[in-house]
Structures are given as C-alpha cells and as structure tokens.
C-alpha cells in the first residue's frame, strides 16, 4: 500500500525504530540501513524515493554517503543531525542534501518536510489524504468529512482537530495533544478556545446528521469514532 519508500540511515537503534514506526504510521514504507559500511548498496537494492540521513555515522559520515548517493541518483535527501550549526547546514546543502532537520525534532515538522520534498520531486499527492474511522472519512485534500448519507466542509482548525483524533480512531486523545497539533499549524489557541471549537464542530456535525461522532471524557480528552 505504501507508495513511497523512505530509507532511514541512523545508527541509534532506538531512535531508528521509533522513527520508522512513526513514518510507517504516516503511511510510508520504511527501510532502515543496517550495514553502515555499505549504505550505498542498501540504497541501490531498495531504491527508496527519499533518504533520511544522519551525519554522525560509524565508518563514513553522512556527507560521504550523500555524495555517493548523489553520484548515482537525484533522490531527495533529508539530513537529520544533532550538529545543527550553520556550518554543517551549509555543508549539507553543498553536498547535495535537500533539507536539514535538527535533532531533537518534532515528528510533525519532520513529516511536513518529508511530504514537501516528495511533493516537489514526485508530484506527490499526500497519502495522508484519507483518514477513516467507522465509515466516516476525513478527506484532507478537500477539507471535508463525509459519511454514508452526508458530508460537511471543515475549517482549517476543525480539520486539524479531526485529523489528530482520527489518527487514532476511537482512542481518547488528551486536549493538550490536540492543542499541540494546532500550535504546530500556528493556531496558538488555549484550552477554552479548544473546547469552544470542539463544541461548535460537534454541533455542526449533528446538524448535518452525524451524531455522537466526537466523544468527551472529562479529565481525559476527546475521541472520534467508535469506542
């Protein structure tokens, strides 16, 4: 199902595994380089559409592999590094990197950059375009929520809220997590505004015929879809 395969070159096993899991959740295929003496071999074998490359690697560093890959391919390369001084960023771009994310990063930012690069290089139409929960489908590209018998147009904030909830269908998401997602898209709202927003959204859905889709558990958070 994953149309795009990302290659992850990161020698920290924990970070590698956690990041791979998050990228897979976001709908990407992920290959982790295992043999750091032959990253290029792995690249040739797996033919990924994008490479996430750490700079500090055993044997050869990320710059070396970037140059090696560049000699073969125009694949987008995103550097991931803790050493985010301007020097390294400039060097990374000079070696043929397309972007740079400083560790520790926020997954949202990383995903946004990955998607932006894919869009630029492959005419990528966000795979995240559809999120479904119990027959209700969130169409991100069109900004609407549809279900058997109806649909509503959503505002930007409403879409962000539903997206956060529907990424884990049925599970209760703390309001702080939703707020964080909203802040990430530059809506710096507080808890009161969030509950106003959610009540308005809930009313909007009810008026359109979708009742009980968003549930509240006091002190825990909100959930969308079947529990």
């Amino acid at each position: 199902m994953a149309a795009y395969t990302l290659m992850l070159v990161e020698d920290d096993q924990t970070l590698c595994a956690a990041l791979a899991q998050r990228l897979e959740e976001a709908g990407f295929g992920v290959v982790c380089a295992q043999d750091f003496s032959d990253v290029l071999g792995c690249f040739v074998r797996e033919k990924p559409q994008l490479v996430l490359l750490d700079i500090g690697l055993p044997i050869y560093n990320g710059f070396y592999w970037c140059a090696q890959i560049r000699a073969l391919s125009k694949v987008p390369i995103l550097f991931l590094s803790a050493a985010a001084d301007n020097m390294n960023i400039v060097l990374a771009v000079q070696m043929g990197g397309d972007d740079f994310v400083a560790k520790p990063f926020s997954v949202e930012v990383l995903l946004a950059k990955v998607r932006a690069l894919l869009r630029r290089c492959y005419d990528f139409k966000a795979d995240e375009a559809l999120l479904a929960s119990g027959g209700v489908v969130l169409k991100l590209a069109e900004g609407c929520l549809s279900w058997d018998g109806g649909s509503v147009e959503l505002t930007r904030n409403e879409m962000k809220i539903l997206k956060t909830l529907m990424q884990r269908p049925g599970a209760f998401v703390p309001k702080e997590t939703i707020m964080q997602a909203l802040w990430e898209s530059e809506s710096f709202i507080d808890a009161n505004t969030l509950s106003v927003n959610i009540n308005r959204l809930r009313r909007k859905l009810e008026e359109a015929g979708l009742t009980g889709f968003i549930r509240t558990k006091k002190g825990v958070g909100y959930a969308a879809g079947e529990g």
């Binding site: 924990t14 956690a18 998050r22 560790k103 520790p104 926020s106 997954v107």
Partner: peptide, 10 residues
Amino acid sequence: KTPIAALKLL
C-alpha cells in the same frame, strides 16, 4: 541530542 530525539518520539 540523539537519545533526546528518541525519547521525544517514545
């Protein structure tokens, strides 16, 4: 920073 990045995800 690498373990911090990992913890952040976890």
